[in-house]
C-alpha cells in the first residue's frame, strides 16, 4: 500500500508545483486544493453522478462479459459461424460510437439502455478476443480425456475449457473494465443522461474547474479500483497457475 500512496503524494506535489511555477490560470487547471475544496463542497452531487456512471459501467460490463464469452464459445466450436458472424462483430466494433449514437438512443432511449449499449460496444471485444484465444488453447490431452470419459460439449466447456481460459479472459476483462467507466461517460456525453460524464461536461461549460477536476480524479480512482478488483478476483481464481 506504501507504493501507491507515495505515488499519489508525488503526483499532487508535481501538480501543485506546475500550476504555481508556470502560473497556470485556474480556469485552465486549478491547484489541487481547489479540486479538493470543490470535492468537499459538492460531494453529494459527485456521489450522485458516480452512482449512475458506476451502475451503467457495471451493467454494461456484465452484459459485455456474458456476450463475449458466449460468442467466443460459439466461434471456437464452429468455423462456419465464425466466418459468417465475426465480420459483423468486427464491423460493429469499428463503427464510431459517435456516428451510431442517434440510432442507439432511438432504440435504447436516453437512460441506462444506451449507456449499456455503448459500454458493451467498446468493451466486449477485448474480452471476446482473449476468450477465443483461451478457449482454443486448452490442452489437447485434457480434451481427449473428457472425450474418453464420455463428457458432452457442455461439461467439457464448464469443467475444462473455461477454467483453462480464465487467465486469458481476465487479461481481456482487465482491459475492458478500465475502459468501461470511460465508455459509460461517453454514453452520457452522447445522451445527456446524468452521471460523472455529464457532471464533467456541465462543470466545464460553467468554468467550474475545481468541480471538473474533482470529478475527473474520482473517475480515475474508480477505474483504478475496478482494475484492482479484477486483478484480485483473477488471483483468487487462477491461483493454480503459481
Amino acid at each position: 500500500m506504501v507504493g501507491p500512496v507515495v505515488f499519489v503524494v508525488v503526483l499532487l506535489a508535481l501538480w501543485k508545483l506546475a500550476v504555481t511555477a508556470f502560473a497556470v490560470p485556474p480556469y485552465i487547471m486549478p491547484p489541487p486544493e481547489a479540486a479538493w475544496t470543490a470535492f468537499l463542497k459538492e460531494a453529494d452531487k459527485i456521489g450522485y453522478a458516480l452512482f449512475f456512471t458506476l451502475r451503467n459501467a457495471a451493467a454494461g460490463l456484465l452484459v459485455a462479459f456474458v456476450l463475449a464469452i458466449v460468442l467466443a464459445a460459439i466461434f471456437v466450436s464452429s468455423r462456419k459461424v465464425t466466418h459468417a458472424v465475426l465480420p459483423i462483430v468486427i464491423g460493429l466494433r469499428t463503427a464510431p460510437v459517435l456516428a451510431i449514437a442517434p440510432i442507439l438512443i432511438m432504440i435504447f432511449g436516453r437512460g441506462i439502455g444506451t449507456a449499456i449499449a455503448v459500454v458493451v460496444i467498446v468493451s466486449f471485444f477485448p474480452i471476446m478476443v482473449n476468450a477465443m484465444k483461451g478457449f482454443s488453447s486448452t490442452r489437447k490431452n485434457a480434451l481427449e480425456l473428457m472425450h474418453v470419459l464420455g463428457a458432452g460439449w457442455f461439461k467439457t466447456f464448464i469443467k475444462v475449457r473455461l477454467p483453462f481460459a480464465l487467465p486469458f479472459i481476465f487479461a481481456g476483462l482487465r482491459s475492458a473494465a478500465t475502459s468501461a467507466i470511460l465508455s459509460a461517460m461517453l454514453a452520457e456525453w452522447l445522451s445527456g443522461a446524468p452521471g460523472l460524464g455529464t457532471l464533467i461536461l456541465d462543470a466545464s461549460s460553467y468554468r467550474k474547474t475545481g468541480l471538473l477536476w474533482a470529478a475527473v480524479i474520482v473517475s480515475m480512482i474508480m477505474a483504478y479500483t475496478i482494475y484492482w478488483l479484477t486483478t484480485a478476483v483473477e488471483k483468487r481464481l487462477t491461483a493454480w497457475r503459481n
Binding site: 490431452n141 485434457a142 481427449e144 464420455g150 469443467k159 493454480w240
Partner: peptide, 19 residues
C-alpha cells in the same frame, strides 16, 4: 463402450486439471 464409461485411459503426461 466410451459412452457407458467403460474405458480408462492413462496419458503419457498425467493430464491432471491443475486447479
Amino acid at each position: 463402450a466410451r459412452r457407458r464409461h467403460e474405458i480408462g485411459f492413462v496419458f503419457q503426461d498425467a493430464s491432471l486439471l491443475p486447479w
